[in-house]
Design a protein around this nucleic acid. Structure first.
Length: 564
RNA sequence: UGGGGGAUCGUCUAGCGGUAGGACGCCGGCCUUUGGAGCCGGCUACCUAGGUUCGAUUCCUAGUCCCCCAGCCA
């Protein structure tokens, strides 16, 4: 019963119903329409999964990738490239259906003349400020521009001269002639074209007038034969305008706009504007900073496309505003990585131990399991010797009752090795800090040996001091100290950045098998979490990012204790 | 105070007049050479008030609360 099937949602249901009713000739054509003015983030992933997923799930369904590049001042080919990379990395394929709204500029222009000819659009010459005043308010109707009744001939002439570059920016716009008293402000003669003497990254200086979203988007959809144009909730009251534009242009095809609630994630920066601000002000390392919910950031952090897709599938699609907890995203990456990542041992904060009764100069190559969840992952050898590093957190001089790890006189098992007992503690006489532990081992308890069955309360990880490689490990915490939705608008939101969002731990020691780890490789550091080799990593300086920690029962207990 | 939307466990989400389900989370327990994973059990919800009905989360009415809209951004 509980098979892993794709959950339905109101959009899937609607599309299925349209197909069943033979609407659009039974075809399903969706599109993902990013503007190339920033990098994609997990919110876009939701839309990508929805649009491409709808196409995939429908026999004959297709999904276009269309760049909505109608604003030359903010767009850049760097973003076009990055967006394509990200969509592909997420696992979706637009095949030969890569489109650009800018490729439609000539046709859109013709549609604009069509509207002018039928008296549905006019050239206005009010300043932006005047236009704002004429627009009215939420509760008061607007009033007609003095230019609203220009003749078709005059409008055509003016519009052509706008195109020809005769006027400076801001002097004229093309407006839809709808209703300045409409209770829906979007219908109060919205701007269709504006003058922008700016080079476009694709069309260069061929144009100095550019279509507005409300004009370009519905018509691009119509041109491409999009059946279901899925967008976010804030466009809901643009839908009458969307339909108006398509009807006035008289296109053969009439696409249907459907809106859903955008994704929000707790303690994550999800607005394009804010992400750009973080990057530009160098508050983060770049668009791929692992603290960012950008696709590039998640990727560098160690997230897999599979986990992101599973997350997007499970959060569902609805119309109510929602804030998904970060823990849910973390759940899906843990679930994925648990099944596939190779286990290795790494010590983040080393504490040296000497096994007093272990022969000096001896090195044993012990057998270690690569992935207990996957027998085909095989085994590897890990060198064991007299002096080792263990995790500082795995020793407590005066442990509470629930602490099962090492303490004076206590025993633990060293993973894949022996049971050891702590017999001595060396401290720095000045600071009182523990600098070294002396232990003894029980040779009969070697992992795999018949007499090794003796139970101890805990197993801890370790590395051999002589064989381990040094590494830097970057730990990440939420970028924000509070949810931005609760931050007053007049506050500088960057003051809510978490100063502890990045914790660089240097002097870590990792087992020798990691010496040649290639950037982008994911591991489980046993008992610690999932880690991914960073692009900054090289053979001389290993760098790992913590993708997500393992669930930590002791941390919870410890937290509960200190809270009391 | 105009218009457009939305309200179901702490968080997401299902339900389409007939016992309110799932996931995350949280709390127990089992198991464990990762305090991981796995397994078992538990926790908590229909915005309010009326009405229709044998029966309402679902339909109706009236409220309440939340989100979006006054860019020549998308």
């Amino acid at each position: 019963m509980a098979e892993e099937t794709s959950a339905s949602n109101f959009i899937r249901d609607l599309v299925a119903a349209d197909r069943a009713a033979g609407k659009h000739g039974g075809r399903v054509v969706t599109r993902f329409p990013p503007e190339p003015n920033g990098y994609l983030h997990i919110g876009h992933a939701k839309s990508i999964c929805l649009n491409f997923g709808l196409a995939q799930d429908t026999p004959g369904g297709i999904c276009h990738l269309r760049f909505d590049d109608t604003n030359p001042t903010t767009e850049d080919p760097e973003y076009v490239q990055a967006i394509q990379d990200d969509v592909r990395w997420l696992g979706f394929d637009w095949q030969d259906r890569l489109f650009f709204a800018s490729d439609y500029f000539e046709r859109l222009y013709e549609f604009a003349e069509t509207l002018i000819r039928k008296g549905a659009a006019y050239v206005d010459s009010l300043t932006a400020e005047e236009m704002r005043l004429y627009r009215g308010t939420l509760t008061e109707p607007g009033k007609n521009s003095p230019h609203r009744d220009r003749s078709v001939e005059e409008n055509l002439d003016l519009f052509r001269r706008m195109r020809a570059g005769e006027f400076p920016d801001g002097t004229h716009v093309l407006r839809a002639k709808i209703d300045m008293a409409s209770p829906n402000i979007n219908l109060r003669d919205p701007v269709l074209y504006r003058i922008r003497h700016a080079a476009h990254y694709r069309t260069g200086t061929a144009w100095c007038i550019y279509p507005a979203y409300d004009f370009a988007h519905p018509l691009s959809d119509a041109i491409e034969g999009i059946t279901h144009s899925i967008c976010t909730l804030e466009f809901e009251d643009h839908r009458p305008l969307y339909d108006w534009v398509v009807a006035q242009a008289g296109t053969a095809h009439r696409p249907q706009q459907i809106e859903f609630a955008r994704l929000n994630i707790s303690y994550a920066v999800m607005s394009k504007r804010k992400l750009l601000e973080l990057v530009e002000k160098k508050l983060v390392a770049g668009w791929d900073d692992p603290r960012l919910p950008t696709i590039k950031g998640l990727r560098r952090r160690g997230y897999t496309p599979e986990a992101i897709r599973a997350f997007c599938e499970h959060i569902g699609v609805a119309k109510r505003d929602a804030v998904v907890e970060m823990q849910l995203l973390e759940h899906f990456i843990r679930e994925d990585l648990n099944k596939r990542s190779l286990r290795v041992m790494a010590v983040l904060k080393p504490l040296k131990i000497v096994i007093d009764n272990y022969p000096e100069g001896t090195v044993e190559e012990l057998d270690a399991v690569n992935n207990p969840e996957d027998a085909s992952a095989g085994m590897r050898k890990v060198p064991f010797a007299r002096t080792l590093y263990i995790e500082q957190d795995d020793f407590l001089e005066d442990p509470p009752k629930q602490f099962f790890r090492l303490a004076p006189g206590r025993e633990v098992r060293l993973r894949y090795a022996y049971i050891i007992k702590c017999v001595g503690v060396t401290k720095d006489p000045r600071t009182g800090h523990v600098t070294e532990l002396h232990c003894t081992y029980d040779p009969a308890t070697k992992s795999g040996a018949p007499e090794a069955q003796r139970k101890v309360k805990a197993t801890i990880h370790w590395v051999s001091t002589a064989h381990a490689a040094e590494a830097e490990v970057r730990l990440y915490n939420p970028l924000l100290k509070a949810d931005l939705s609760k931050v007053p608008a007049d506050h500088d939101w960057t003051t809510y950045l978490n100063p502890q969002s990045l914790e660089r731990v240097t002097g870590c020691r990792v087992e020798p098998s990691l010496k040649n780890a290639v950037p982008g490789t994911r591991f489980q550091f046993e008992r610690l979490g999932y880690f991914c080799t960073d692009p900054d990593s090289g053979t001389d300086a290993l760098v790992f990012n913590r993708t997500v920690s393992l669930k930590d029962a002791w941390a919870r207990i410890d937290k509960g204790r200190s809270a009391r």
